[in-house]
């Protein structure tokens, strides 16, 4: 990279976990050598937020990172956040919505009026910032995985193509489901519907509300903090990367006539029932024993 690109992180209604999560990237120190932060809420930055609020009209950045749900009435020190976002959005080359709140509205959109993501309110497309849609990239997740932020910024700085889906999510990370790579996959494939919390065995899809088979994400491929994932340890995926996060009844599977109401991404009910019927016709002993059980 010829010159250091200038990054700007602007928080809206946020919890700051996206910012903290970035600090967990294993190569953050090396990444930092190639980029400068005009402002980041934790890391050393070229400017204070105070200076930016006072002089933002004279400032620019290369990549704008927006964190947190947008809120029409939000201002800091009398500066409307909306005006400031619009200013930087005009001149930057790319906008990243970092996390589910900035992308779709997320949890906090239900806490007050006029809250949403940058381009989406849940699944609904918004007009407010549509001039910048083509330069925006959506990185949902609550929080977003730090590897995704670092890889995408690096790819943008180096040029080249970044395949995106209709929500403008990079396909390298969101072209999979959270189910891919889950250590409990066999219990799903063979339709073993028993799952007890506190055990290595079992799949949470059938009883405990796991949304991994229909949530876009790569948690189980790139793993969290280099070591694990929610579903690997035995917590259902709550679909935190999705436009409808948080749904209601996050720990139980909604069913119609005993069949899970939501089926794996793109799988028809007929296909699902046919496969389930075949799988259930067999009893495979291994899936009914504890993995750590001593053998004779």
């Amino acid at each position: 990279m010829a010159e250091k690109k200038l990054l700007l992180w602007l928080s809206q209604l946020a919890c700051n976990a996206n910012a903290h999560s970035l600090l967990n990237h294993p190569s953050l120190e090396e990444f930092q050598k190639s980029f400068d932060w005009l402002y980041h809420p934790l890391l050393p930055s070229l400017s204070s937020l105070d200076e930016i609020l006072d002089n933002y009209e004279e400032m620019e950045c290369d990549i704008l990172l927006i964190d947190g749900a947008l809120c029409a009435g939000l201002s800091k020190k009398g500066v409307r956040m909306r005006d400031m976002l619009e200013h930087f959005a005009k001149s930057c080359s790319h906008i990243l919505t970092v996390g589910t709140c900035a992308t779709y509205g997320g949890i906090f959109s239900a806490g007050g009026e006029d809250r949403s993501g940058l381009h989406f309110d849940g699944e609904k497309r918004l007009d407010g910032f549509s001039d910048f849609f083509e330069k925006s990239i959506s990185l949902p997740g609550c929080p977003v995985h730090p590897e995704i932020v670092v890889s995408v910024i690096t790819a943008l700085a180096q040029g080249g193509s970044l395949p995106l889906d209709s929500y403008r999510r990079p396909k390298e990370y969101y072209g999979y489901t959270v189910h891919d790579g889950c250590s409990r996959n066999e219990y799903f494939e063979y339709k073993i519907d028993r799952h007890d919390f506190g055990h290595l065995e079992g799949c949470m899809f059938y009883e405990h509300g796991c949304r991994g088979t229909y949530s876009a994400g790569s948690c189980n491929m790139i793993l969290w903090n280099g070591v694990s994932s929610k579903t690997r340890v035995g917590e259902p995926c709550h679909g935190c990367t999705e436009a409808d996060f948080p749904t209601r009844g996050l720990w139980r599977t909604e069913k119609h006539m005993g069949i899970p109401a939501r089926l794996p991404l793109g799988v028809s009910k007929r296909a699902y029932l046919s496969l389930a019927g075949v799988a259930k016709a067999f009893r495979i002993d291994r899936f009914h024993r504890r993995i750590l059980e001593d053998e004779e």
Binding site: H20, S21, G198, N225, G234
Partner: peptide, 26 residues
């Protein structure tokens, strides 16, 4: 410290591995 939390709780920040009755992991 975050990766030590994640090894039993799945990820950090933002997991819900403690539920009434104990923890979800083994």
């Amino acid at each position: 410290a975050a990766s030590m939390i994640a090894v039993v709780a799945g990820q950090y920040p933002h997991n819900s591995y403690a539920i009434p009755g104990g923890v979800v992991c083994e």
